[in-house]
């Protein structure tokens, strides 16, 4: 699995951090997504897919 994020589309909701905190974080100053792990292990895949699915900015892309 490979994750890419589009900072320009990120609205700072933090939904991804709520769902997969080991993979995503937010910048302190503006809340934009920080990708902690672009190629997470299998244990994270379901959470990452859900994070991408619910992201209100459609800012997370997952390729497998």
């Amino acid at each position: 699995m490979k994750i890419t994020v589009d900072e320009d589309k990120c609205c700072g909701a933090g939904s991804c951090v709520l769902i997969a905190p080991e993979v995503f974080d937010q910048r302190e100053d503006d809340g934009i997504v920080i990708l902690l792990d672009a190629e997470p292990g299998a244990g994270q895949h379901a959470a990452v897919r859900e994070a991408a699915a619910v992201c209100p900015g459609a800012a997370i892309e997952v390729s497998e």
Partner: peptide
């Protein structure tokens, strides 16, 4: 609510 504090708002939510 966050006003130019998105991360802090999410932490408060949690």
């Amino acid at each position: 609510l966050g006003w130019n504090m998105p991360k802090q708002a999410r932490v408060l939510r949690q």
